[in-house]
């Protein structure tokens, strides 16, 4: 049962509710870094990495600090005075993500310089990538479409973050492949660049709608 629900979450986040095509999250890097396949892969890998980690950490912050029913602050406050801090979710998450990205950057630079050189320039861009914050918020809100009302468990959150990143990487690779071909085509002058990329994304979204028929 446990494994099955994890698989369902993965398929749901990669194909059925792809972050880029049906939730419109992470569109800026989707358009900005999809010119060449090599940079698309670098960006996608960085997003997978940060999104999995951020899912775990924001989940822990929410569960152990903000949510009064499971908060460790219960040690310091009595039950009546325990503050309900869930309204601080947005502020807490964005701070956690921003410092996490900074921290990962420093650790990689020191410990794994090869990986740092590969991901280097993409890491700082990720802080303001709405896909990361979106994944964190979705983990808390839950996925009622696949029968997961309310907050996900820690493992489910990490799987969700990871597969949302995989879905993002998949879209980046597909899009950069198409855009490399588009360079050679004759397109009306006013549609060149971003406009035609959007229309391509629309066509891809139609194709991906086919997955919404999957019964899981």
């Amino acid at each position: 049962m446990d494994i099955k629900i994890l698989l369902i979450i993965a398929i749901y986040s990669i194909l059925i509710q792809n972050f880029v095509l049906t939730r419109f999250l992470g569109l800026c890097p989707f358009l900005g870094v999809s010119q060449k396949i090599s940079s698309a892969v670098g960006m996608g890998m960085a997003v997978i990495f940060v999104m999995s980690l951020a899912s775990a950490i924001t989940w822990a912050v929410y569960t152990y600090f903000l949510d009064p029913s499971t908060s460790i602050l219960g040690f310091f406050f009595s039950e009546e005075t325990l503050p309900n801090l869930t309204f601080l979710r947005t502020i807490a998450f964005i701070l956690v993500i921003a410092s996490l990205v900074q921290f990962i950057e420093m650790v990689l630079q020191k410990k794994v310089p090869t990986l740092y050189r590969a991901l280097g320039i993409y890491l700082p861009l990720i802080t303001t990538n709405c896909a990361i914050l979106g994944a964190a918020v979705l983990n808390i809100d839950g996925f009622s479409a696949i029968g997961l009302d309310g907050k996900l468990t820690c493992i489910q959150s990490v799987v969700q973050g990871f597969s949302a990143g995989v879905g993002f990487l998949l879209m980046l690779i597909l899009m950069s492949g198409i855009r490399e071909k588009l360079e050679l085509e004759s397109i009306p002058e006013s549609l060149k660049g971003v406009p035609i990329a959007f229309i391509m994304a629309g066509l891809m979204a139609i194709a991906f709608m086919g997955f919404s028929g999957l019964s899981i």
Binding site: S190, V194, F198, M209
Partner: peptide, 18 residues
């Protein structure tokens, strides 16, 4: 549905550029 959003913004940006 989601694809419609992509088409509308793509065409709008195209008109602006035109």
């Amino acid at each position: 549905l989601p694809p419609g959003a992509f088409f509308v913004i793509g065409i709008l940006l195209g008109i602006f550029k035109w």
